[in-house]
Amino acid sequence: MSPRDLAIKDLKTHDLTMREAARASSGARVDLLLIAEMVRPGSRVLDIGSGDGELLELLATTRGCDARGIELSREGVNAGVARGLAVIQGDADIDLADYPDNAFDYVILSQTIQATRRPKWVLEQMLRVGSRAIVSFPNFGFWRMRLDLLVNGKMPSTENLPYRWHDTPNIHFCTIRDFVDLVDEVGAGIERAVALDASGHPVRFNLPWAVWNLLGEQAVFLLSRKG
């Protein structure tokens, strides 16, 4: 399926999702609502880098999911446990290896892949542990990033990514096109892909990857294991 077809397919569902999001007005991050919408109700879900458990709770309450988390910070784990969620303090770069095959329907990595030491290994593990993977990430190919680097000659720093080059936890930035290459490399299939513009809305044009790569500030991919 070409990105153009994917985008057409997405337009229908995502208009609905955004309306739902507006109705929900729960203050949840748009990308989290988008991810939650991609998850089939009642599924078993593992959220890597679950933070304070916002997405897990969203999945448990609105989608009836059995949602589990891995979180690096103890503060995050405490917050999740206090919400009644199952959250394990751990490091995706190491601890994914300890999960059995096919333990989950979905494994989610939200805004975290750029902070992993081994993004490819992590993605492979996600598709081993779960039959589907959902990955959202900031797009370093976004036009403002390119402009920033071109004009200022310094590593871009944005509202969402405020770090400087030497103190950022984000050590493996990629663009949407880079990510699509990695998906090919690990032999996964793209079931859906959505680029979100700077205001958090899906890019509403049926355009090739190259354009998404310019207009999307972040992207969300739903991947499946091939074969």
Partner: peptide, 16 residues
Amino acid sequence: VHALNAAGAPVSFAEI
């Protein structure tokens, strides 16, 4: 924790 994960049990873990 690994055994509980393998058993599909809801488990949380924190190292203090």
